[in-house]
């Protein structure tokens, strides 16, 4: 068991060792925090399901470098996102803007909640009209 833990810990440490950029990009902690927030909202186009903060694909490294350079040049978050969208489309953003094409995407949680709520209300309302004892279910009285 102890050996298993040791292996598990070693694997976790190996993961840490793979961390992408070892040195912080900016000396100023506020800038560094801003940088980390921005790169967590941009998608790596090579690996699709990762942000450029998490990916060690070469394209992700290049997009991080461009992000750093634009921040150092005093560009706003909006300008950095626009730079990426101009080249890669809205897909590069982890939070796509609300447009007619994404209404279903953004509306899905509300639709599912309302739809599920309606079904639940319908079922509950119907069941509440049934008699308390169900002759088809002999086990009910026993429980």
């Amino acid at each position: 068991m102890k050996a298993l833990f040791a292996i598990f810990a070693a694997v976790l440490w190996a993961q840490l060792a793979l961390a992408i950029d070892t040195a912080p990009a900016f000396a100023d902690p506020a800038q560094q925090a801003r940088y980390e927030r921005v790169i967590r909202e941009l998608r790596c186009l090579q690996c699709r399901s990762e942000t450029i903060a998490d990916s060690n694909a070469t394209l992700a490294a290049d997009l991080r470098r461009q992000t750093r350079e634009m921040m150092a040049a005093g560009k706003s978050d909006q300008e950095i996102f626009q730079h990426m969208v101009d080249r890669y489309g809205d897909y590069v953003l982890y939070k796509p803007p609300v447009t007619p094409r994404t209404w279903l995407l953004w509306g899905a949680p509300i639709l599912l909640l309302v739809g599920g709520g309606a079904i639940a209300a319908f079922v509950i309302a119907r069941k509440s009209h049934l008699p308390d004892t169900d002759p088809a279910d002999p086990g009910l009285g026993a429980s």
Binding site: L45, Q46, T58, L59, D62, L63, Q66, R87, Y88, G89
Partner: peptide
């Protein structure tokens, strides 16, 4: 450095 490729929206 890949900057021109990025300008062209290359991802692979």
């Amino acid at each position: 450095e890949g900057n021109v490729g990025i300008d062209w929206g290359a991802y692979g």
